[in-house]
Each structure stands twice: as C-alpha cells, then as structure tokens.
Amino acid sequence: MLEAGCWLTAPRARDPRMPLLTIAFPVFDPVAFAIGPFVVRWYALAYIGGIVLGWIYARALIKNVKFWAGPSPVTLPQLDDFILWVTIGIIVGGRTGYVLFYNPMFFMQHPAEIFELWKGGMSFHGGFLGCVAAVMLFARRNNISILSLGDIVTAVGPIGLFLGRIANFINSELWGRAADPTLPWAMIFPNGGPIPRHPSQLYEAALEGIVLFTILAVMIRMGALKRPGLILGSFITIYGIARIIGEFFREPDPQLGFLWGGLTMGMLLSVPMIIAGAIIIAAARRRKAAETVAPI
C-alpha cells in the first residue's frame, strides 16, 4: 500500500548541482494484506504472480501449433505437473544460492536462519540452477526434450523477473549506487542514507523483464521454438548481459562489497551464463528444426 503523502520533495541542497526537486522514495507497506495472523507480503505475491502468469503464457505457447516443427514436445497436462517441480526448484535453488554465494559466513554461524525465508535473501543465479535441475529431472522422468522444456520455461521467465524487481523496489531493497545529483529521477531511499541513488530495481525490471521478454517473444514468432535450445541459450546470454549492465548501477551487497577490480558478485556469476548461453545458441543453430520432437 502507498501511504498518503509519500511522494514528498526535498528542497535544493547546498550542492549547486542538485536539481530543484529530489524524489523521495514512496514508502510502501511491504505487507500486501493480512488476515488475522496470516500475512502476505508483496515479495511473495511477486513469486506467485510470476508462476501463475508464466503458466498461462506457457500454455498459450504449447497450444499454438505454428510455433513448433510438428506437435509440441510438451503436453498441457505435463506442464501442469511441472509447475510444482519448478516452484520447488526456484525456491530451494534461490535460497541455497544466496546462502553459498552472498552470505556463507553468516549462515555458518546461524544455520537455523537458512530456513527463515520470510526474512528475505534469494539469489537469481541459484534459483536458475534450481530451475535447471527441475527441468532436467522432470524431462528425463517424462521422456520429453530437456531443451524444449527449457525453452518454454525461459520464455516465460522474464515475467517473474519483472515482478520480482518491482517487489525489490516496493521493499526498498537492492537500491542503486549514488547518482549524479543532477539526475532527474535520482531517488532518496529511506534505508539508503540521505544521498540520491539510482532506482536500479526499476532499471533491472526494464532490462531483465520487459526488454528480455520482448526479444524472446519476437524470436518465438520468428520460429525460434523450432530449434530446441535457441530460446534457452538466448535467455541465458541476454540475461547475463542485462545483469552485468544493471550491476553498474546497483549498490553491492554490504557483506561482500566490490570484489576484484570493482566487479560485483552478480557480475562474476553472470559471465559463465553468457559463455554457456552462447554455446547453447551455436548448437541450436546447427541443429535441424525437425529435431524439435526428439528428446534431447
């Protein structure tokens, strides 16, 4: 909920470069609604919304025969069964990735807090690996194409990424680095100190959500699903590039800070994604479209 009078403006600071008005962060309540002791936060709604909307879009892709070189390699009942698998993969992988990549020393000292998901702390790269594991296990069990199932999952992935970054913004977390005071949309976050900062969550929502979704949607309409792995590889590569760009504006996690040469953990984890994605794209382009129906 947006509290009344939140969009306040601050007067010109002493720095002559400061704009006439500086945007103050709109103070949102992180709790979307509560029914008695049952509390639902915006971040949880982002996950739920991403999964539900992604499921709806995935069903539409499967049902459109024009997108496939023959029958779709995944049936609608199989997709419905897969939702539970991928949900578990995202949550377990996302939490495990955060524990291992971003705060291992803290959780070694407080292992019980690993399971306290309501306190926050999820990693996209870990969640992606968990999703990959879910895809591979489900595809093997059901004798369907790993690459084609991966194509479907990554085609809908930007929906969840977009909603997740919006939830980061609502929670006033993962805010950006200090911005040039003359930047018109520089924002003062309540827990980010008195200096104007980049609203990096919105930058990432645009790059990882809107831009990535649009590119993949155009590729699908140009026949990309007829070459297994092409959407999967494109998602991995483009996300890695978008994440590295976003990291230039995002404040590093305080427990890690900047790493070698000013790099961040998000940048380092994205480099292997770009390489792996490029390899998958190259293999998909060499593969004949007719091979779509074969389990790979």
Score class of each variant (00 low, 15 high):
Ile146Arg: 15
Pro71Asn: 11
Glu116Ser: 12
Phe115Glu: 01
Val40His: 07
Leu53Thr: 10
Trp85Asp: 07
Pro73Asp: 09
Ile83Val: 15
Thr96Arg: 04
Ala133Trp: 01
Gly50Glu: 12
Gly121Leu: 06
Leu21Phe: 11
Glu113Thr: 10
Phe25Ser: 10
Met136Ile: 15
Lys119Tyr: 05
Phe124Lys: 01
Val135Thr: 05
Val27Pro: 05
Phe28Ser: 03
Leu53Ser: 11
Val40Phe: 07
Val52His: 02
Met136Asn: 14
Phe25Val: 07
Val27Ile: 13
Ile62Ser: 06
Phe115Ala: 13
Glu113Arg: 12
Leu137Val: 14
His125Val: 01
Pro30Glu: 01
Val86Pro: 02
Gly127Val: 01
Phe124Arg: 01
Trp85Thr: 03
Leu117Glu: 04
Ile51Glu: 02
Trp68Tyr: 09
Lys119Ala: 11
Tyr43Phe: 14
Ala24Met: 11
Val65Thr: 14
Gln78Leu: 11
Ile56Glu: 06
Val27Thr: 13
Ile48Trp: 10
Gly126Met: 00
Lys63Pro: 00
Gly54Met: 06
Lys119Thr: 03
Pro37Asn: 11
Val31Ile: 14
Thr75Cys: 02
His110Ala: 12
Val39Tyr: 09
Thr75Gly: 05
Trp68Asn: 02
Arg59Tyr: 03
Gly54Val: 07
Leu84Asp: 10
Trp68Lys: 04
Val52Pro: 03
Pro111Ile: 05
Asn142Ser: 13
Ile56Asn: 05
Ile23Lys: 11
Thr75Glu: 06
Ala44Pro: 00
Met136Gly: 10
Leu76Glu: 12
Gly49Trp: 01
Glu116Asn: 15
Ala34Leu: 03
Leu137His: 04
Pro77Thr: 05
Gly126Cys: 01
Val74Cys: 04
Pro37Phe: 09
Asp81Arg: 14
Leu137Met: 11
Ile91Lys: 00
Lys63Thr: 08
Met122Cys: 02
Leu79Asp: 05
Asn142Met: 08
Ala60Trp: 10
Leu84Arg: 09
Trp42Tyr: 15
Leu76Phe: 02
Gly49Thr: 00
Ile35Glu: 14
Pro30Ser: 05
Ala58Pro: 00
Gly97Thr: 03
Ile56Ser: 02
Arg140Phe: 12
Val74Tyr: 00
Arg140Leu: 13
Leu84Phe: 15
Pro111Cys: 06
Phe38Trp: 13
Pro37Gly: 09
Gln109Asp: 09
His110Pro: 06
Leu20Trp: 09
Phe115Trp: 10
Ile35Val: 15
Ile83Asp: 08
Tyr102Met: 01
Asn142Thr: 12
Pro71Leu: 12
Cys131Gly: 15
Leu76Gly: 05
Pro30Ile: 04
Trp118Lys: 12
Phe38Glu: 01
Phe67Lys: 12
